[in-house]
Design a protein around this nucleic acid. Structure first.
Lengths: 135, 135
DNA sequence: CGGGATCCTACTCGATACTG
DNA sequence: CAGTATCGAGTAGGATCCCG
């Protein structure tokens, strides 16, 4: 961002807002966070990035997720076309979940963010400790 | 992800878990989302990416944010070292907010995600409409 | 101007129990 | 096995009022 030269930060902001006026950044970010900002969605996507899995396996690979929340998360991801659900009419039932092409396209930017987090978390924790120190 | 060849998705998952065993992906992602996953944090960061701003200006540039939530969001970001706060002892008071180096380092991965969202939102909306159609 | 303190509501999420 | 249904605690976030 901010490749061009501007007279002031205000000018940059104006240019930024003109550029984004037709898309409305806020709404977009809200829709994005509604899908991947919840507690489990990114973990599900990260896990499915390696291949399709059954419901129970998925749950076993994501420590702490409840049956209910995994179901809800998967429904949301399925609704938004990020994950495909394939049910087999067998006894006992079997359901396979996999990333759709759209879902796969999210893996790269998402793991970029994850990499940032893993690298910077120590800094963040230090900053937090320092901030809390002088109350 | 998944550059190597594996006999099965399960093998990939096992390798993945071994690689991440010491960092615990889930905790990291949770900490990350606790900071940028809330309703306003990413918008604040995106706005401050262009330069420092006063509280009132920041609020004016982020439609819909309440005074309270902007304050809380800024405190969280400040606590985690992503944003710096500079108060000037003047009448009337003036407070400038700016991204720290750590905050700036988040801009690139975050805007990558934003770009993904802007490009893919049409697909997602279509998928959602289709999913809702056959209830 | 830049907040802090309060109240209040709606929603999230976990635990538990039941079903095809 | 893979869900659905229900209940309850906790919390996010908006509205409002006040202060230095």
């Amino acid at each position: 961002m901010a490749e061009r030269e501007y007279a002031s930060a205000r000018d940059m902001l104006t240019a930024y807002e003109e550029r984004c006026a037709n898309t409305d950044d806020g709404i977009i970010m809200r829709e994005l966070l509604d899908r991947i900002g919840d507690k489990w969605a990114l973990l599900v996507i990260g896990t499915l990035a390696f291949g399709q899995l059954r419901f129970g396996d998925l749950r076993a690979h994501i420590p702490g997720v409840s049956q209910r929340m995994l179901t809800i998360t998967l429904r949301h991801l399925e609704r938004d076309g990020l994950v495909t659900r394939t049910a087999f009419a067998e006894i006992p039932p079997r359901v396979e979940y996999a990333l759709s092409p759209l879902g796969h396209s999210l893996v790269k930017p998402a793991s970029a963010l994850a990499t940032w987090a893993i690298e910077r978390i120590p800094e963040i924790r230090a900053a937090r400790a320092h901030f809390d120190a002088d109350t």
